[in-house]
Nucleic acid binder design. Structure first.
Length: 474
RNA sequence: GCUCCCUUCGUCUAGCGGUUAGGACGUCGCCCUCUCACGGCGAAAACAGGAGUUCGAUUCUCCUAGGGAGCGCCA
């Protein structure tokens, strides 16, 4: 019988939840869901200087927004320091670790010497066998792992394959600092073990740590969890993802009007594929997800593809949930509250009525909101420069005629107004476009909009006739 | 410098010894059309380079080049 799958997401709360972390969390979540297991959340806050409460809140908020849930209580690593110390002492008692009294200056010298000689193991292991009686006064010792001096450390990684290190290249890592606090390396091993983690899925910047952690597992006689190191996400230019490209918090993606479903879909396809399938519902992702299908090379972040996917999910969303998402978004964007103040039963109904035409034209909620501007705009409309060019004396005169032609239309609908405008165009030997564009400019202040007869219908006769009169020239 | 990882269209990728090297985004063209979109059709576009192994390499091995990660008493 195979043990139940337990994965974990273990961010260090030194900033927002960035896109790479979001993908790591997603992969852990998918794997757990697929195998009916659990995903645990552990906050790696042992660095007291850099860990902050707002960062923790931002990470939890980001995960929630993305729809990624975790099981059980959130573990705060710092609170487990006593347990970490206990394990270090246990290793010490078993002769698998030793006290090291090397000073910072000595360590620096060793590092320089190692580099000069082209060696990768920095610490020279001098306190391995030295008598602690020789300890210099005033130096608080660290506890180091007595790592194997020869042989190999091997990780059978589910993504990277078999990765081998020669032990002579790995030095004795510090388990417990001079101040008695555990290092990351020790804390991770102890926590993963104690939490019952069966599968470690994390960024491949941790691949080398896996070797050192394996040595700790071996010294403790614990079984190493399944390891999967997923490639990092790079910026569009192939370099490390920086703030300049896409290393934004997921909250920034929310503010840019991306849908969680779109971001999930984009992220899951970055480095992972399932044949030719591009669109995945959450359930499809869970069913199809497979560690062995994750590629080993880094992927570049491509906003154009994210936008395309986002457009897809917007088009496919139902009108009411789009309106809900839009109102939600207003709380996260500049001037959002001013717009929210204009929402009432009437404008909400208009938004809903216009939604079919709106959602086809937007790649982000921000765009959708912008395109919906004509609904909440105040008279007289601000006319965009491009639209202003349409308003020649001749078209202003035409607008006056259109106003008159529409005045008698009853009942008012997109069908009846369209019939009236087509009739008007025919009688005056005009193409429909020659009528539609001036109408569009007068009613929306822009040269592009949803279908103009839908705009007419949504705005209603009073508002339309007033806006037309505003721009007409008699 | 050292250790480890990576390398198919511009981008994300399919391919798991024999294919006209497939799909998606983006780009371009045509159609649809009241604008913009959506949608439809079509086009251009890739196996980093070099040695092997093999009847046959995009696929296996090695080397080179390029890219990345790590090299702390940070996580």
């Amino acid at each position: 019988m195979t043990p139940p799958v337990v994965t974990r997401f273990a961010p260090s709360p030194t900033g927002f939840l960035h896109i790479g972390g979001a993908r790591t969390a997603l992969f852990n979540w998918l794997y757990a869901k697929k195998h009916g297991g659990k995903m645990l959340l552990r906050i790696e806050d042992t660095d007291r200087e850099r860990s902050t409460e707002p960062a923790i809140a931002a990470i939890l908020d980001g995960l929630s927004w993305l729809g990624i849930t975790w099981d059980g209580d959130t573990v705060h690593q710092f609170s487990r320091a006593a347990r970490h110390r206990e394990v270090a002492e246990q290793l010490l008692a078993a002769g698998k670790a030793y006290r090291c009294y090397a000073t910072a200056e000595e360590l620096t010298r060793m590092r320089e010497a190692a580099r000069a000689e082209g060696r990768s193991n920095l610490y020279d292991g001098s306190w391995r066998e030295r008598d602690t009686a020789e300890a210099p006064p005033g130096v608080k010792p660290t506890i180091r792992l007595k790592a194997p001096l020869s042989g190999e450390t091997v990780i059978e990684d589910q993504v990277q394959g078999r990765v081998v290190w020669q032990n002579e290249n790995l030095d004795d890592l510090v388990l417990l600092r001079g101040d008695g606090n555990p290092t990351y390396m020790l804390a991770v091993v102890v926590d993963d073990h104690d939490m019952g983690v069966t599968h470690v899925i994390r960024g491949d910047d941790h691949l080398i740590n896996a070797a050192r952690q394996k040595q700790i597992y071996d010294a403790l006689g614990w079984e190493l969890p399944s390891m999967s190191h997923i490639p990092l996400i790079h910026g569009p230019d192939g370099s490390k993802l920086s703030k300049r490209h896409g290393a934004l918090g997921v909250d920034a993606y929310r503010a840019m009007g991306y849908l969680p479903a779109a971001l999930r879909n984009y992220l899951v396809r970055l480095g992972w594929s399932h044949g030719d399938q591009e669109i995945f519902s959450t359930q499809e992702m869970i069913d199809a997800f497979d560690l062995s299908a994750i590629g080993r090379s880094a992927a570049r972040f491509d906003f154009a593809k994210l936008e395309n996917l986002n457009g897809h999910y917007i088009r496919q969303a139902d009108d009411q949930s789009l309106l809900t998402m839009l109102e939600e978004l207003l709380r996260h964007i500049p001037h959002g509250l001013e717009i929210a103040a204009k929402l009432n039963d009437t404008t909400r109904a208009q938004l809903l009525q216009a939604m079919p035409g709106l959602k086809e034209r937007a790649k982000t909620l921000l765009e959708l909101l912008d395109n919906a501007g004509f609904i909440i705009a105040d008279r007289p409309l601000t006319i965009e420069p491009k639209a202003l060019a349409v308003l020649t004396p001749a078209t202003r005169q035409l607008i006056g005629q259109l106003h008159d032609a529409l005045e008698s239309v009853t009942p008012w609908s997109s069908e009846t107004t369209e019939a009236a405008m087509r009739a008007f165009a025919e009688q005056n030997g005009l193409k429909l476009g020659a009528v539609a564009q001036p109408l569009r400019v007068a009613l929306t202040g822009r040269t592009t909009s949803p279908g103009i007869f839908d705009v007419l219908a949504v705005l209603g006769p009073q508002e339309c006739l007033s806006r037309l009169a505003d721009q007409a020239q008699r």
